[in-house]
Amino acid sequence: MSQSKVFQDAKSALADLKSDMTLMSGGFGLCGIAENCIDAIADMDVKNLTVISNNIGNSGRGLVKVLIKDKIKKAYCSYVGGNPDLEERMLAGQIEVELVPQGTFAERIRAAGMGIRAFYTPTGYGTLIAEGKEVKEFDRPCILETALHADFAIIKAQKGDTYGNLWFKETARNFSPLMAMAAKTTVVEVEELVELGDIPAEDVHLPGVFVQRIFQGSNYKNDIEFLKLEGQQ
């Protein structure tokens, strides 16, 4: 490591993100999204981004902030329900959306990070998803799916050390470790930036070798989409 991975903030860590690049964005719904990075990109002078994210934000929040500034040319995602801003642009043909079954989506990203070029899966066989894809019969018919790479990944972790070793809280992990592996440059924002050794080696969820940049985030909203408490409904 010739240079420190630690950056000041989202703006400095994303300074070389350019138009026409491919961007992965971690999180499931609004859970575990890189809030500081998303806000920074919404204010940057970039356009024609290809975005790979399970949900392109929701109800005006998350990546919707980037979407409504018409910075996204193409999106890969598994779910668009509850996102009227995206559905509207999709039906009007203003954005190209490739819907990918969620498990295939995760595995295509993981494959990129693991050096696997493509894989066969039964998911999607006999559906619109299989159109134009090679089908091969194993114990049952499977379709060929290829790896998904990116120029940048923006992810959030609860804790990270200065080498980029990460620890995620509860279900906030989701796609983030996979995206960190699949992108050329992975930018991580954390709620707690800690020193080397503060995360015990056994508790590292993602080794820092997959992380290029890390910064201490701020002003987290950690929005809840659907609050359900015991005794309700």
Binding site: G103, F105, A106
Partner: peptide, 24 residues
Amino acid sequence: SPTLINAGKETIAVGDGASYFDSS
């Protein structure tokens, strides 16, 4: 907890013996 949700993005609780993992 805002970081503990199900696939419907609703808040949940977990019991003894629960585990967390990535999407893959």
